[in-house]
Each structure stands twice: as structure tokens, then as C-alpha cells.
Design a protein around this nucleic acid. Structure first.
Lengths: 208, 208
DNA sequence: GTCTATAGCTAGATAGAC
DNA sequence: GTCTATCTAGCTATAGAC
């Protein structure tokens, strides 16, 4: 019998704990000592797997963005009306953000940074590319809808911003959001509710 | 003749530069050495005006939240329909975020923190109170609208989150948002457009 | 691939002269 | 109210033994 928990490589373990820590306290708020401790390694051993803190951060970000893109790409490429595609896009994004609770915070932190992705670094540029792909997808989706007359005329960039804000921020809001809601952000009830509210807002606004 | 630029106290100068730096790089990303330099003081002199970095951060946050609340409180207390009040609320919030470009970033960073406001500290608790007041205002506004039948039935906390995300995130998105829009976030054109898009979304959603 | 040791620097905060 | 000097502790990163 194989062990029920597959042992993972040190590299993956580092990525795993770094993801949690960067999400919780941001790039500058995390020291590699703590990452190493939680990964069960000496601090210096990190540098065997990642050549710098920036590189580690870039890989963490790229990994998270990759998971998101893997969910959204099939949706924007699917063969249904823009209206249904948008609904599925929101549904998929909310699901993936609720599934990986670090994702929203990492992404929100990155988007709010001055220089969104840090230095000119291989790992970092890769992450940027993935994000660009995601944006292209939702931009194209909205554009389709407008050109087919399904969506009203709109400023697509502003609507993309609104979509990001309404979805990513919500799951990035941590304790604050949970206090507001009175329940965990990722509880199945809260997730369902949030989807409903978003879709209704996108379809008909707030008016009765 | 008095000088055209009123000289400000060291204390105010410190708050001024700290606001910019905390907004740009977050609490952990800013060192007091840099704050002191930009304020034209030695590092130790900061501790004469603020007893710790936490206290300085708390005051910066409280000041910014105070400015926002000063704009929104009269609006939620005004004597018009919930629909018009919500429109004015969005209008006012967007204006104040566009007027003080640090505000959105500081606020978004604070909301995404684990522990939204840091340690149990006098200055920090004050900031929390101001935020609580702002939230109470918008909550009451939405509640009024629902009870009067002007707004559809909704989860008010989720809608508050969506409103925060759609407004605060947008102005906190810095370079990323400007690249997406192709123009400065706070240009009068972009601000006008964003207001229009938000109000239309809140009123009628995206559908044609 | 992991370790100890350490370099070189910066952090927040304090003491005490002026 | 501002300064210099200093403390302790943290940081990223490297060198080199095992």
C-alpha cells in the first residue's frame, strides 16, 4: 500500500507555504526565515530552489494565476451566447477564488502594487503573461456581447475593472468581509449568495 | 504679505509623506528612515511626534477615512429618495477617491490585511470607528431602499462588498488600471466615465 | 540537497546632548 | 524639537562543509 498522503518535494512545500504567507502579509511583510521554518528547511536551503525572494514570489503568483486561467480560458472560448458565457465566467472565477482562498489576496495585492509585478524577472514576466491572457479573455467576451447587441454599449475597460473589483476584492477582504457577512467568505452559502448577487447586479442592477 | 504657501508643522509634514509612502508600498514596505528623509527630519525625530510606526500608520489611516466620511455622511443623511442617495453616494465616493489618490490604496490595503487594522492601539481603534460609521451609512441607505421597495430584495452585506470592490479597487489599481484604461485613473474623463458605468451598472446591469 | 556560519545591511526604537 | 549615537533584531544572500 502506498502512503495515503503523497510526499511532496521541498520545492512544492516551499511554494505551498510561501503562497499562504505572501497572501496573508504581502511581499514585504514576509521573511524567508519564516518560509523556511514552515517548510521544514534551513533558510539557506531556499536559495537552492529559488534564486531570490523575487523569483519565489513570481512563481507563487504565476502558479495562482495559472489556476485561474485554467478555469476561465475554456469558458471564454466556449460556444454559447455572451450572456451565458459571462455568467459562467463569474461563476468560474468565484469558484476558483473560493477554492484557493489565497488566490484573491495575492492577486489583489499584486494589482494594488505600484509596479504591479515587481522587477524584470523571468518568473515575474511569466506571471504577467498569464494575467494578460485572462484579461484578453474577459475583454473579448464583453466585446462580443456588445457587438452582438446582447450587452449595452459600455466602456469595456471600466467594466473589466468593475468585474475584478466585485469578484476579487470580495474574496480578498478576509476578516473584514467575514465580519460584514457574519459568516466565512468561502462557506458554500456565502459563495452561492455572492454569485447570485453578482449575476443579478450584472443583469439588472439594483432597482426593483 | 504672508507667504503664499503656509508653512506646515513637522507633524503634518510627516503625516503627508507617510500617507504617500504607505499607500504606495504598504505598511511593511515602508521604513521610517525614508519617511524621515522625505519629511526633512532625522529618523529619531519621528518618535517625538508619534510613539511608534503603528501609531503613525493608524493616524494616517484615520485621517484618510475621516475625509471620506466627511463627504459621505451628509449624503446618507440627506432627504431624498434612496435611489438618488445611492447615486450621490457613488458620485461622492468616486470624487473623494479621485481627489486623494492615496486614499483608495490605503483603504484597500487595510481591508485586505489579515487583521484589518493592526494592533489594539488608540489611533488604530479611532480609524476603525470611522470606517464603521461609513459602513453603517451605506448599509442604512440600502436598507431604506429595500424597505421602501425602490431596490429589489438583496443581501445587503454582499452588495456593500460589491460597491466597495467596484469603487475602491478601481482607484487603488494604480498602474495596472491605467494600463487597462489607457489614461490616468483620476483624469476628469476617466472619473466621469467610471461614474457613468457604475451608476448604469447599479441601475440596469449590463444587458441591452 | 541541506546544513552552519557569516557578510552586509536595514529595521524599529531608545538615550541623552543641545 | 531635533540631533548623534547606539541597541537589538531582523533581513536577503553567499560561502563552503557534509
Amino acid at each position: 500500500m502506498k502512503p495515503s498522503v503523497t510526499p511532496i518535494s521541498s520545492r512544492d512545500k516551499i511554494l505551498e507555504v510561501a503562497e499562504v504567507l505572501f497572501a496573508r502579509r504581502g511581499y514585504a511583510g514576509v521573511g524567508l526565515r519564516e518560509v523556511a521554518e514552515q517548510a521544514g528547511l534551513g533558510k539557506s536551503s531556499l536559495f537552492h530552489h529559488f534564486k531570490s525572494k523575487d523569483a519565489l514570489y513570481g512563481e507563487v503568483l504565476g502558479q495562482v494565476l495559472g489556476r485561474i486561467r485554467a478555469v476561465l480560458d475554456p469558458i471564454v472560448g466556449s460556444d454559447v451566447t455572451p450572456e451565458l458565457r459571462l455568467e459562467a465566467w463569474v461563476d468560474g472565477l468565484v469558484d476558483v477564488l473560493a477554492t484557493y482562498p489565497c488566490a484573491a489576496r495575492l492577486l489583489m495585492r499584486a494589482l494594488v502594487e505600484d509596479d504591479p509585478f515587481g522587477p524584470e524577472l523571468l518568473e515575474v514576466n511569466a506571471a504577467e503573461q498569464v494575467l494578460a491572457g485572462i484579461l484578453e479573455g474577459i475583454h473579448g467576451l464583453l466585446d462580443d456581447g456588445v457587438r452582438q447587441g446582447v450587452f449595452r454599449d459600455m466602456s469595456i475597460p471600466h467594466s473589466v475593472q468593475t468585474l475584478i473589483g466585485a469578484t476579487v476584492y470580495h474574496f480578498a477582504s478576509g476578516e473584514f468581509g467575514e465580519n460584514l457577512l457574519g459568516q466565512p467568505l468561502v462557506s458554500s452559502d456565502a459563495v452561492r449568495r455572492h454569485k447570485t448577487e453578482l449575476v443579478r447586479m450584472l443583469q439588472h442592477g439594483l432597482l426593483a
